[in-house]
Design a protein around this nucleic acid. Sequence first.
DNA 1: ATTCAAAGTTGAAACGATTCAATTAGGCAC
DNA 2: GTGCCTAATTGAATCGTTTCAACTTTGAAT
Lengths: 333, 333
Amino acid sequence: MSVSIRDVAREAGVSVGTVSNALNDPDRVAPGTLQRIAETIERLGFVRNDAARQLRAGRSKAVGLIVLDGANPFFAELALGAERRADEFGLSVLVANADEDPQRERILLNLFEEQRVFGVLISPLVVDVETLRKLRDRGTPVVLVDLTSEDKSFSSVSVDDFAGGKFVVQHMVDRGCRKIAFVGGPLIRNQVAERLSGARAAAESADLELTVVETLGMTVDEGRAIGEKLVKMPKDQRPDAVFAANDLLALGIMQAVILDGQLSIPGDLAIVGYDDIPFASTAIVPLSTVRQSPALIGSTAIELLYSEAQNESDAIRQLVIQPELVIRESSLR
Amino acid sequence: MSVSIRDVAREAGVSVGTVSNALNDPDRVAPGTLQRIAETIERLGFVRNDAARQLRAGRSKAVGLIVLDGANPFFAELALGAERRADEFGLSVLVANADEDPQRERILLNLFEEQRVFGVLISPLVVDVETLRKLRDRGTPVVLVDLTSEDKSFSSVSVDDFAGGKFVVQHMVDRGCRKIAFVGGPLIRNQVAERLSGARAAAESADLELTVVETLGMTVDEGRAIGEKLVKMPKDQRPDAVFAANDLLALGIMQAVILDGQLSIPGDLAIVGYDDIPFASTAIVPLSTVRQSPALIGSTAIELLYSEAQNESDAIRQLVIQPELVIRESSLR
DNA sequence: ATTCAAAGTTGAAACGATTCAATTAGGCAC
DNA sequence: GTGCCTAATTGAATCGTTTCAACTTTGAAT
């Protein structure tokens, strides 16, 4: 059915080895031969079979990237950063969406291992160190993204979520907010827990209490539900500032509040999100948020993965990027 | 290095054929043997090598999806729809981002062919029928998404962009707009051209002229640039309604106009977008737009691809989905 | 004329799973 | 005990590429 390198060799009157050389190391092949082979390939419509190449090579040139939530632009940017850097190493990136489901995460991990990917970048729900360690012991390097590994045995690129959370609440306090609520979850997600810890630290040093609303996920829909509850609260219980653990959540809350029409943002309620997705600045009220440089996380992760694959001596490293508070209208009062 | 099926066979005291059967057709293998093989696999940490499987099988179980712009949530939803449906056929979906670059599109197409994917879903910049036909002749089924094939030789799932464009301008006319501008591009992109044709038709039947502003791409940044020019126009030249060919563009325009502060939306300027991305409803002024059901496009495309791969008699079909006008505040005046 | 190196070329041996015709074993009936 | 059927198992051949040691040719140096 399909045209193989053998067919090309026969038609061009050379051996298979020569065709292979023509494709992979043209300098080894005489110009005339090269030309003849090129024409034959064109004429027969030969296309390399990657499965055979990979089988021979042992490992693929593709990196598997497993993201938590494919619908979050934060991960789209992270993926883009990874792709650009991977290009420079001659690698490609396969993006897979775990859709916040730990089981799907496991299936994808297995899929990537069966494909003998060059390595895996993963931002897991909860780090299942055991599974990841086994994977690595069998020869697939792993780098954690957007998350630190507690036990320092894996490379990781993360953002200092504690600092981010602290910045947000400090800013709210500076602006005169007294009743601050943190919204996000689930709290077993490391990033969320860290942001909360940072927020708590800032609240404590200002002698304020922090209300915590734990959510199941962090989507626009979930935010809308929270927002609808919020506007129904009596004035003395209602917070005057909401720190949402990501922008999707913040936008949802904002939408519900504005739709209701009773409260003004930021007058009655300040809102700050997290991630600085492109749509934060185009929101009903431009959203204050914490910028994480997802593209930088992605590109750095590829670099770490590459070092680890090369067995460099200091290959295992935990990098922490400092986040940046972006103040827009939603918290300016 | 890596554990192969041969190692498992030796350790378990059976032949390679039996191990293979245990994995692929357990009913053929005696329960005791099955158990022993399972234990050996666990003990040795054996993981199937997908490259070898594929080489033997000839084709992979993965569908390649090439999207125009990975940053557009419209395509994220389309991909999700495709993934869900593919699951049911036992297929998986590889998403690749052409990033609006025809050359990258070509490279990705070749990459997918080298991987002998089950089939390709593509939303090309401009259909290069010749390339796609060759690809198909060599055995890779192709389905066009979000675009019709003019010559009916390819299956496609598209949205009736002409109708969508018509709806938008009709709605603007109904609301009393007299000077309507169409913003989008490049016009060689079929979808954009169709939306414009529909808009023109509606404008003509209302005896209005349509101003056309052709853009190079359709991102938020591009929209902002247009918006900044718009607010500087003298009142008698300025349009009273803008139809942007996608939501990103519309959101960018809206942001620039609001930031400038001179014009009110929709009072002075009505804006309508296209796609109904999740952020259209959370915008500064909730954005009127045209809903396309991207998930439906994705899932339907997978179905068409599957039929074509099965060589079903009526496999080549062009499906056209009707879009729906979603009216929000940005065009209500 | 002889020697030697460099440049091209060859073809068989992997890589690891699947397939399938052939073989063996086990059970049952007579 | 013999024959027969089914169930289980075997192992060589295959997929298409890359690799590499071995071989041939060419041309320059002596």
